[in-house]
Nucleic acid binder design. Structure first.
Lengths: 256, 256
DNA sequence: CGCTAGCTTGACACAGGTCAAAGGCTGTGG
DNA sequence: CCACAGCCTTTGACCTGTGTCAAGCTAGCG
């Protein structure tokens, strides 16, 4: 097996995508194979790169193999709001169907590696009526549906954070969410994980100013709720944080 | 044609549903007929009624024929955040597929009339592989997809409002959004519409306190941006409001 | 005709924003 | 190997948008 980007095998590169989709719904051997094939055709982008412009149509699903990104919108006066933070295994944009002219753009927050599905390698079953839309032609319709459902839940959580929670609660909630999502793809242990985000990014996500994010993090440290140095996070009291943030991890519909 | 709820014909009762879906994608005659049939089987609920509980599964799509509702979540200490305001023609909850255990509940804000689709009256084409999920069995897959896309855009708008806009901007933005959506279903003219929402509901939607919503509305009045008495809204300077709120109406994918 | 739900207003408190400056880091070039 | 540049973090002083509390007011409704 030939060495790739920093010497990883295709399977290793697509690990996060595999784990995430498999958690949403167990992958069939055929599907697993197609995921692994993603590792063959990837492209890298530097921090700050625009992964998907404002009105870009989303034809085929693109996944993050490694690195972090975000979906965001800019106001005319320069204010920025980040809708969601994307981690390895996440899809960039949405694949529900043709319409998605999302009014958001996606931007890399770190060095990032992406892979896009080849469209219709599944022609045998694609003879089904196109009523299904393009989403189905590649055989992951149910995964996409569940992924969309999960993401919608995350958006709703975000709305609650922004509308009704204090800076302290918001920050705790975000940390718990990231921890849960990273654990899903095997990139977090019980209480620690790596979060390569600047305080500016946190601010634009949490609807706060940079300065206040800093102060809030200090407060969490003083309260012995977290340790944080560089991008290394340790949650010292997960139960307490969960109460403070009223955090409820997403429920994955089990099975089949 | 027999008289119904306050003497309306089925076609009149389902007007909003028809107009909304037809705007998303022109309805075929057969689809139009099925929509009209909705008017035969409706049920009413009083203000405050729970239309859909917290973890309720969403099997078949339910539409609002008349009245307003909202999707919301409550925090343990009683704080409330409203995710979206539902008007006639809107679907309650989502119909993307089986998983939608949405962590939100839907509540009637006024007296409301609902109608739910009968499941599989379209059996001829439902012989298609069930890979499509239940969403397709009733023949509106593309409408549902576009509706979901539209709603996702509204959620993103809401996140920007809550995260990065001032009370004044948020309020202006909401008024413009409601105006656009009401116009879509033929319930608004160029600048006026009816908004049967208390200031408490506005507050819980906009992430503000009741008192501050009141003050903000006063300010909009003083600035001669709006008139508002009871539930009657007049927007006095739509262009200006649009600039203030940085409002961008949703783009409906045209055609077919 | 009194009650209640909703609206309005003032006085005051506080979470969070803004401004400004000083410290780290880290990478790069001399 | 040092020095500088740039980005990020941290902190203090101060300001303001929004929340809280409390009290009237209004109007529809039983």
């Amino acid at each position: 097996m030939p060495a790739r980007e920093n010497g990883m095998s295709p399977a290793a590169m697509t690990g996060a995508v595999f784990r995430r989709l498999d958690a949403l719904k167990p992958l069939s051997p055929g599907q697993a194979k197609r995921i692994e094939a993603l590792g063959e055709r990837f492209e890298a982008a530097p921090p700050g790169a625009t992964l998907q412009g404002d009105g870009d149509a989303l034809v085929r699903p693109t996944f993050i193999l490694s690195g972090w990104a975000c979906r965001q919108r800019l106001l005319p006066d320069g204010r920025r709001q980040i809708f969601s933070i994307l981690i390895p295994g996440d899809a960039v944009g949405f694949c529900l169907g043709p319409s998605p002219v999302s009014s958001a753009s996606a931007v890399a927050l770190t060095k990032i590696v992406l892979a896009t599905f080849e469209a219709p390698s599944y022609s045998p079953s694609s003879s089904a009526p196109l009523s299904n839309g393009p989403s189905d032609s590649w055989g992951f319709a149910e995964h996409i549906r569940r992924s969309a459902s999960l993401e919608e839940g995350l958006l709703l959580d975000h709305i609650v954070r922004l509308g009704r929670q204090t800076a302290y609660e918001r920050t705790a909630h975000l940390l718990l969410e990231l921890h849960w999502r990273l654990a899903l793809i095997g990139q977090a242990d019980e209480r620690r994980f790596t979060m390569p985000l600047t305080q500016e990014v946190l601010a634009d996500f949490l609807g706060l100013s940079i300065v206040h994010v800093n102060r809030t993090l200090q407060q969490l440290r003083r309260d012995r709720m977290i340790e944080l140095s560089g991008s290394h996070v340790v949650m010292l009291d997960v139960p307490q944080l969960t109460v403070i943030a009223d955090y409820q991890p997403p429920v994955l519909t089990p099975g089949t």
